[in-house]
Structures are given as C-alpha cells and as structure tokens.
Design a protein around this nucleic acid. Sequence first.
DNA 1: AATTCGGGGGA
DNA 2: TCCCCAGAATT
Length: 355
Amino acid sequence: MPLNWVQSLLNWYRENKRNLPWREQKDPYAIWVSEIMLQQTRVDTVLDYYRRFLGRFPNMASLAEAELDEVLKYWEGLGYYTRARNLHRGAGEVMTKHRGVFPDNHRDVLALPGIGEYTAGAIMSIAFNEPYPAIDGNVLRVASRLFLLEQDIKSTGVKKEVEGLLKGVFPRQECSDFTQALMELGALICLPTSPKCQECPVQRDCKAYRHNRQQELPLKSKSGRQKKVQRYIAIVQERDRVLMGKRPERGLLGGLWEFPGVEGQNMEDFRQFKKEYNLEVTPCEHWIDTKHIFSHITWDMKVYRCSCRPEAIRESPLQWVYIQELHNIAIPTAFQKIREKILQEKNVSPTGTGR
DNA sequence: AATTCGGGGGA
DNA sequence: TCCCCAGAATT
C-alpha cells in the first residue's frame, strides 16, 4: 500500500528541510519572533535580523522591559514596522495577562496583537504540536495545485476551503512537522513559476500535475499600480547636530525618525513646512536627489541644505539630533542614503561643514 | 472586500 | 517592470 500524500510529504521534509535558527528549539517565544519577522519577508532577509534580535531580547521579559525605540532600532530596514510595535506590546501583555508565560491555547494566542489566523496556527502547530493549519502564501499555492483550486487564492472562500481540507488530514502526532513541511514544499519545490514537479514528493497526488496545469495555478487577482510622489527634504544642520522629526506612531514608517520634508510638485511647496512642521526654511543649496520605491508608492526625493530661524525650531515638533546619534535611532531605508552622506561628510571634513 | 503597510530578490 | 514573499489591521 503506497503512502498517502501527508506521509510522503513528512518523509520528504525530514530528509530535505533547511537548517534554520528557529528550528533549533520549540521555545514559543522564539517561534513567535520568527513568525512575525517572516510575515511577507523572505527567509534570507530575516536570518541576520533574527539572530541579532534574539541576542538582544532572548526572552519575553527582556523584550517587555525594553524601550520601544530600541526594539524599532533592531527592526530598522526590515519594514512593516507595526510588527515591531505589536511584538513589543504583545510581550507586555504576556507579562501582565499570562504571568510571563506564552499562552498555549489558540484563543489567547490569536488575541495577541499582530497575531492573525496564520500566525496563530503556525505557533499552535509548530511550538505546541496541535492541529491548527497555518495558511500562508506558500500553502495557498501548494493547495491550489494539489487540489486544483481554480478560484482567486486571495478570496476568503479559498482560504476557508484550504483550512477545512488541511484540518481533515492533520497528522495528530506530527503537527509541527506537517505545517513546516507544507511551507517548505512551497519554498523549495512548488515554486511560483516553474515548479520542480520532477522532485516533488506529492507529485503522484497532485491534481494540477495530473492535468498538466501546474503552470496556470494559482489564480490571483492583479494588484494596483504604484504612484509617484515628489518629496522635498530639508537638511538643517548647525555644528554637530541635524534637525529631525519622529513620524507619528500610526501610518507609513510609524514611529521612525526622518529628515523633515513635504510632498509637493515644485519648490513653492517648501512653504508647506509652515503648515506641517510649524517651521520656516529657506532652501539654499541643492544637495542630492535620491529615490525610494515602496510597494505602492515611489518617492522621488529632492534634498536641499536649508537654514531657518532659531525661534522657528522651538515652535516646531522637530528636534536637534547629534550626528553621532544617527547610529542609535531607527531611520527607514528610504533615508539611509541621506544619513550616510551626512555621516560621511562629518567624518571626511570634521572642521569644514559650516557655511 | 479592498487598502494600507517595507523592502528586497528574481523573472 | 511586475510579482512574490511563513500577513495583520484598518476602513
């Protein structure tokens, strides 16, 4: 009697799984951190962040006691910064509501901030070995081919269908490996384009392969186009300090530091500084241009060295930041080039930065 | 149900 | 260029 596809998949996983740092133990805290980092983020990108983060915040208490700004600094460049905020807040909730012990039931796990259906399922199955499916992009792609699901995989109906199908076949003693095996198959074999069906452990059970339609699946609705926005940025320096602002907690790049700037069509929009920052600046020297591409927006940034009246700064929400401190605050990738140039200039000509 | 939210890698 | 990635929260 041939093995069913679940056993075949499990056998393949145990032979071929990658050695990843979050697979070296079953600590729910460490699994939690890894799952949050891996949301919409590739494994290769996460590896270094994960090691540094766990080195600094090795357990729930250390994370809960840390300052949010330091957590954001460790998240700098990783994107989706709400994840870091929710991770920090979640650690606080575990300390106060669960006596510092990560909850081991689905309801309480799902209630933590930043944890949705996928992450709750991942933690319950991987860390606690319980039969809760974790349906991510990989699993949806694998399932759409394995079961020949011909609807948009982003629809809630397909997710519910996959959830039901997986719950029906969960190997009760091997939930942890099963969840990870499905994702590993999607990451290594059942690729978005040109899947490696010849190496696939469940080829025999794959409906899409049987009908030679694996290239057509999964079906997915198209995403919108990206907008282009010009952004004028003012670099205001005096001696060894530079003017910066902290972005609001909510919204794009929430809670991170930025060089003051406004969106606009032309130079005249520098006047908007008065509205947005309660600050008047006089653009004087065009410094550099830089570009940053987000998922849906492209920032074309025109950067000017500026000056302003000292009293205007006191009335603005902006703050002077020592240039040395630029290393210690969280600045989004969009502004890294500007930061580097300021640091470079400071190091190269320590006496000649004044005008 | 549709948008928002980062950033990087690959076709 | 566009899509994709161990998605969640908001509207």
